[in-house]
């Protein structure tokens, strides 16, 4: 069984004129020691899905469906029970590392306070463990860093420290929401390497959320692509990137620069823009922008079905059309 299983997740947020469905029937599973990716553009519902897993959605949000973690349904948990899961079993890293670092506390204090509070360590043990954690995330001079404040560090180093904070309780899953988006590419590569090493050495599972398919391709084992609140395609990353089958996945890949390809590969833009969550089109939500759309796309919501070891929500299946 998977470590984390999300079944038919729906998230409704209050809107000016009635609730707005931002996540509409999403299924995915994170396996032990795997990096599972949720890809999609802004507003596709990927962050909302992750926040739902952690019970961090705004108070007035409504969540439906099941989120099974080690046999427990997180949706049904009370806030107090959720607190024993959040941070301990499932931790989170945000795009802006300052979200999880207090600007007025030294790194040493931030780490050891968490350690003493959550793991009931003695002062000396907490100190020792803090140094170990900083070594783990490859902060140069861990002892010296304990006395520094977050603003003394560069963006990349801060993200490493935020990862160290996330690792305090030795969680089995880390949810990383655009962890490298604010970083330079040369620094991003280091953070991706770190996440990959933690997965291999510590068996950490990662739920990686990013709009960047390049990042996804370099570390995710499996990936689901979201569009306007729904998953349109899921499968093994290599398969998906090399042979996208949903027109949206294909469009997204064609719109990206491909450094590995020759110079004669123009960017092919997807026409139009994503729908507003308040006013999604009927049928397949991508049909107004899809070059393959047929009549049924406009009225019938395509279901995710198994096709050749992946799941696809498109009755047209452009790959089949092309071949």
């Amino acid at each position: 069984m998977s470590l984390l299983e999300v079944e038919n997740l729906r998230v409704h947020l209050p809107g000016a004129s009635g609730p707005v469905t931002v996540v509409d029937g999403v299924d995915f599973a994170v396996e032990e020691g795997q990096v599972f990716g949720l890809a999609g553009e802004s507003g596709s519902g990927k962050t909302m899905s992750a926040l739902a897993v952690l019970g961090l959605l705004p108070r007035r949000a409504q969540v439906e469906g099941r989120i099974i973690y080690r046999g427990r349904d997180l949706v049904a948990l009370r806030e107090r029970e959720m607190r024993s899961v959040r941070g301990r079993e499932i931790a989170m890293i945000f795009q802006d590392p300052m979200t999880s670092l207090h600007p007025m506390l030294t790194v040493g204090r931030a780490l050891s306070e968490h350690l003493r509070q959550h793991l009931k360590l003695s002062r000396a043990d907490a100190q020792r463990r803090a140094v170990e954690l900083l070594e783990e995330v490859r902060i140069p001079d861990p002892e010296g860093s304990l006395r520094s404040y977050p603003h003394h560090f560069s963006g990349g180093m801060r993200q490493r420290i935020a990862i160290a904070v996330a690792l305090i309780c030795n969680p089995s899953i880390v949810i990383a929401d655009e962890p490298t988006t604010a970083l330079d590419v040369t620094v991003q590569a280091g953070i991706l390497g770190l996440l990959d090493r933690l997965r291999q050495e510590n068996g950490l599972s990662v739920l990686l959320i990013t709009h960047d398919l390049g990042v996804m391709s370099s570390i995710a084992d499996r990936v689901s692509v979201m569009y306007a609140g729904r998953i349109v395609e899921s499968g093994a990353t290599a398969e998906m990137m090399q042979r996208p089958r949903h027109p949206y996945t294909e469009g997204l890949l064609s719109a990206l620069p491909h450094p590995e390809a020759g110079d004669e590969r123009p960017l092919v833009a997807i026409p139009g823009s994503p729908p507003a969550p308040t006013d999604p089109p009927p049928g397949c939500r991508f049909h107004p922008r899809c070059t393959y759309a047929v009549d049924s796309c406009r009225t019938q919501v395509p279901q995710l079905v198994e096709v050749d070891a992946r799941r696809l929500a498109c009755p047209v299946d452009p790959l089949a059309v092309k071949v």
């Binding site: 590419v185 991003q188 590569a189 280091g190 390049g214 391709s217």
Partner: peptide, 19 residues
């Protein structure tokens, strides 16, 4: 180094190189 750090969306799982 800049070129080597760019992640490739090619499904080959090649890790970009950090500086």
């Amino acid at each position: 180094a800049l070129i080597g750090a760019i992640p490739h969306a090619d499904g080959l799982g090649v890790k970009p190189r950090a500086l």
